[in-house]
Amino acid sequence: MKKLIFSLVATAMISSFGFANSGEPIKEKKEVKTESKTSKENNQNVEEVKTATCSATIGGSTYTLEYSCFFCWGGADNGCKAALLDSIDAIED
């Protein structure tokens, strides 16, 4: 389990470096929904807020996690995989 988590985390890190070096975005899978929202304050663009939503069905329950943009660097898909593994580990009685 630890090896699996390590390898996925490593994949996520490698992917994020790939993104930084090549400048090309990592292809995201359909299951991962990324939203881009622009909020305006005093008629001026203040900041762009992105969110990544990861959803997984674990043991019959559906867990939906919403993250801020920083999570998306390495590709939301990789982030969601890591979140899935975190979730499995966090579920207990």
């Binding site: 069905t57 019959g60 559906t62 939906t64 996690l65 919403e66 966090a90 579920i91």
Partner: peptide, 30 residues
């Protein structure tokens, strides 16, 4: 028991470096 399990899950997920801003749980489908 499920609601108690939810609480523990949310607590653990919030303690992670990349903590989610929002968590929704539906189920278990049974």
């Amino acid at each position: 028991m499920i609601l108690e399990s939810d609480k523990k899950y949310v607590k653990k997920m919030r303690s992670l470096p990349n903590a989610p801003d929002k968590i929704s749980i539906n189920g278990p489908e049974s």
